[in-house]
Amino acid sequence: MNMDASLITLENVGVAMRSKLHWNSKKFWALQDVSLRLERGMRLGIVGRNGAGKSTLLRVLAGILAPDRGQLRRATMSCQLLSLSVGFMPHLSGRDNAIVSGMMQGLDYRSIVTRLPAVREFSGLGDFFDEPISSYSSGMVLRLGFSVAMQVEPEILLIDEVLAVGDAEFQKKSGDALRQRIHGGTTVVIVSQSNTQIRELCDCALWIDRGTSKMLGGVDEVLAAYRHARESAETA
């Protein structure tokens, strides 16, 4: 087994969450039994129905959630769950929010400060960059959020449905930047409802159903099996 290539290994991993605040509220298993080996350079798409545990799995891969059963091994590497506008505060300027958000997503102070000109440039905010973001439109906030998130450059990039943001022009710009990152050799895990996107962006796919990993393999193979299962469920 080539250990160098394996970044994260999950063996029969389960994660239990509490659904409500109550003394004896039952735990529910958001993930039941997931096994997965994420290797360096992989572009993995995760498919499954709503509530199958796709986002929970991403948060396990990001190290936010720890498994309650099963085994998880991870190499020492940086990992980012792409989240826009995380930690933004309305009264702070775009510049200060970029610093807060960049640091929360894994950059140290000096790295984010040296990347500020790039954030300002990519976001296209101009002089608004130094204004409080409470004066921004929601599209401008997203542009700033995306521009900061793209500065993190992690070894593993985890994407939950966010593939492009903003108005038509910025959607193209952000989508292109993200595609370039995905095809540039970064290890990527993408959750998407769109089979077209999975086909375009990924080189392998994982199908999970009710918290259980059903199939890991080539994109076409997994998508076909997933579609087949859905069709037979609908006719049944």
């Binding site: 250990m3 160098d4 394996s6 970044l7 720890a66 498994p67 309650d68 059963r69 099963g70 085994q71 998880l72 091994r73 991870r74 190499a75 020492t76």
Partner: peptide, 19 residues
């Protein structure tokens, strides 16, 4: 629950440096 951090292919001490 079992979770372990292994520095696959990283020099020893990388984990501590990371912390």
């Amino acid at each position: 629950m079992q979770e372990s951090t292994q520095a696959y292919g990283y020099p020893p001490g990388a984990a501590r440096k990371g912390m």
